[in-house]
Nucleic acid binder design. Sequence first.
DNA 1: CTGCTATATGGTATATTGTAACATTATGAA
DNA 2: TTCATAATGTTACAATATACCATATAGCAG
Lengths: 182, 182
Amino acid sequence: MPHNHAHDHSLSLFPTDDHDHSDCTSNLMSYAEQFCEKKGLRLTKLRRDILKEIAASHKAIGAYQLLDSLAANGKKLAPISVYRSLDFLQEAGLIHRLESTNSYFACQRNFEDDERACTNEPLLFLICDDCGTIGEVDGTAIESLIGDVTSKAQFAVERSQLEIRGMCLSCQQSETPGASHE
Amino acid sequence: MPHNHAHDHSLSLFPTDDHDHSDCTSNLMSYAEQFCEKKGLRLTKLRRDILKEIAASHKAIGAYQLLDSLAANGKKLAPISVYRSLDFLQEAGLIHRLESTNSYFACQRNFEDDERACTNEPLLFLICDDCGTIGEVDGTAIESLIGDVTSKAQFAVERSQLEIRGMCLSCQQSETPGASHE
DNA sequence: CTGCTATATGGTATATTGTAACATTATGAA
DNA sequence: TTCATAATGTTACAATATACCATATAGCAG
């Protein structure tokens, strides 16, 4: 097997600097095609273009940044068009919205098993304040704890999203050592 | 002891419809005075007025709503003045900002023990989509689980806020019964 | 294919949320 | 008092998001 295993499951915790991102993009795009086909949703050219733009990194991008990127590619759009596609993609579970920064990023769940995507499990994001990279983590462990709390309060949960801000490993390593005790 | 115990700790899970809210307001206001005094922070008239307005309920209020309320009370302000006070109050831990709705509400921690307030524990909010009431819950149980996840990812947490949306007990009860199987 | 209907997109204007930059006023310490 | 710092005022504007109505496109019934 000449194929390099080093990157397998590299996204299960946090996207590493050296992962093969073209895999992420193509996985998501092909999953999006299948998923929309299966669900009778229309992955139109506009929606596909916007999804591809978002999937180009593991950072979150704002709606107006997207507008600019697409304009650079020759697509002159009104904000509302972008927002409508963002709504569609978000409802399909293909992207997420970071509420702390009003920006959008590609879903990172493992799409090899179709059924694992787009469920209502609680969302759990690790957001690096330094480089902007986002890691999407399995939230099922948190789910039961949330259930404890909410059932005591007799609160009927609809949706939960946990945005954890901090610094990723690679940004921690590139901080000037010794700067801490200046 | 002629005092009515029924409301004691009534906010430990979720604010009930019948709790004595004047207690909440006065507790928070007097705590704010003490806390700012102790920390050398200036709880100015503007900041106090804004805090009181926010503390008037357990719902979140937007910055421009606040502007209107204060204008109705004769205070004509620029948005920036409100935002500056909101920043101050938030840094002091006296209010929180709901990131999912860009709005602000009063901190509900138990202020009888000064030291418990304004720590860096993870924030955990239950937000009723129906009536807008918010419950602030102890997040320390979640904290350790978050620690498990983030340490595996070698991610250095700075801040986390969990916004759980759904329906509170009292709104569940006032839903039309039988509507579920229509 | 034609025409119908529902969905998607375009175009224009505007609402909502939040900040920049600089002037003025209030507070607290020397 | 005088100075330095913090707080607020004033004006303008940036960034994010939606309302509203017109047009275009896809899928379907006939």
